[in-house]
Design a protein around this nucleic acid. Sequence first.
DNA 1: GACGCGTGGGC
DNA 2: TGCCCAAGCGT
Length: 352
Amino acid sequence: MALESLQLLKKIQEWHLGIDRKMPWKETLDPYKIWISEVILQQTQVAQGLKYYHRFLAAFPTVQALADASEAEVMKQWEGLGYYRRAKNLHIAAQQIVEKHQGRFPINFEDVLALRGIGDYTASAICSFAYDQPYPAIDSNVERIFSRYFGIELKKSSASLKQAIKQIVGTPFKKVKSAGELNQALIDFGALVCKSKTAHCDHCPLQESCYAYANDQVYNLPIKSAKKSKQERYFHYSILKSENQIWISERRASDIWLGLHEFYLDELATKTDLEESKTRAFQNIVRTKCFRKLYKQELTHRRIFALFTLYELAAVQEIKHGSWVPLEELNSKTFPGVIRLFLDENMHNFIC
DNA sequence: GACGCGTGGGC
DNA sequence: TGCCCAAGCGT
């Protein structure tokens, strides 16, 4: 028999008393720092985000500092973390805060939710952690706990599952002492006990009343959506070099790697096309160097293959949608993983 | 509601 | 190895 929701929440809070999961953003009530941590942690593991959290706050200690920075500086701090729209949106939201809230992070839930890149989860997390407002922060950890415990057969990440959980916890959430601590307890419980792939049912305090455990459904809940096949894409990059400058452009379309830089790109239809791709006819080519290695980068829904060719040109020439930058400045630009890897391995060869 | 968006780690 | 997943959001 399942516990009443208030009892369930109290059990999880009780469990949390014995947990010591130290993280820097737990040590502060500064909504700015909490905001940055929450955005970094969107779809990102703590171990991966920790370094970026410290670096980002050192570079931009306040909302005002972030708003005043250039987009390029913000992107550079985010390089390697992925989901680059998050960085762009942080920058936009900082400017929203300066314009609409005099640079002070808003306190009202609706005002927080209105900021770019902040959805229901992040607004709830910030308002409960920083201000102790009674909003349940329903992330994938929390979905998993309730879906399993009560046997809610709804799809992971679906609005219906979130709504069902809100129904269950809405009233009890207002009765517990600290909403922030409760949200933290739920997230930690999902991350440490009711885990996705290796749940620790053996020492779970809720085992005896858990629906999924009793019915052997732990790994079937919440319902997973059907996996899509991974599409492959084939990029041939021409690195144009002249007078010790390199031509780069910024990715602007609604595509992967928004806001990151790249070299002159030809996208090809097939892997054979890429492997057999000929050198290109740029003007005034002095020398051509083909790098034979086929680079590969796995994204969640894509597999990128990339080949690189270096062209030394007699003179800098105007090419649309990009600009020439000194070779020494290349490392200060922001590149996707596969280009960064290529540069790290080959940049010393650029000196002809 | 479905899809696209990155990277690193676990098994 | 290949596949799944991780403190989601915007379109």
